[in-house]
Amino acid sequence: MPGHAHPEPAAPAAPPDAAPPRLRTEDVSVSFTAKGRPRPVLDGISLTVGQGEIVGVVGRSGTGKTTLLNLLGGILRPDTGRILLDGRPFDRPTDRVITVFQDYGQALLPWRTVRRNVALGVERRLGRAEVAERVARALAMTRLEANADDLPWQLSGGMQQRVQIARALVMEPEVLLLDEPFGALDAMTRAALQDDLLKLQRATGFTVVFITHDVDEAVYVADRVLVLGGAPATVVREVVSGLPRDRDRLDTREAAAFVAARRALADELWGERP
């Protein structure tokens, strides 16, 4: 078991739980059937994400990060336990919690223009004028106005992922869930998108839960990082980044809080096991 006692990083130790809870899981467990036998994946996970908080989730491949995110998005139902949004249980997708999928190549509709991809979730629910207005706003927020009439495959990977983010923003969600959103992108694009996400969060105040394999990304973007581990998985560690919200990429990398948080995560993920 990886959960041996680490000292908390030299940072404000308390998670920013001053904010009222937005999303909670209460003792949720999930198992899949593999080769006819049940295979428990998540075991009694209880966690709380505050309003406007940015939470990162890391863990080895196959631990159940995506499964957890699907639970939070209402895309998957837990076998036991429940998920609460603003204190109310929910177990199906809602406009208020929107997922950005990892594989933009499969999640966007290649035959639709950027504008029509972004409109997917609202086109049948709102009047034309309002759809156009919301889409325009989402495109502006993601700096995609100039590409509104392009098809997704004519764009770079980073732009395609921004299209997916715009498609989420158009719903005006309270929670954005992102599954390894920048995993497939080069370092420069990835850095730019991390800053984009932080800026968007500051502008709109939505809550963010994102999965990543990149420890630096986890610490730089998140207020708090959860480490998922074990089979079935539980939250084995929680690391508060202790960075100011208004963070700057270059200063941050040398900040003591950043270095300590990164070290704590690296120990947890790759450190020697008893």
Binding site: I75, P93, T94, Q106, L120, G121
Partner: peptide, 24 residues
């Protein structure tokens, strides 16, 4: 298969999933 997750996320009706996502 991802299109089905997308459909569920945006609460698209069964008919729309077939006509707007799967058949295209």
């Amino acid at each position: 298969r991802r299109l089905l997750d997308v459909a569920r996320q945006f609460e698209l009706s069964r008919t729309r999933v077939v006509l707007s996502l799967l058949l295209p």
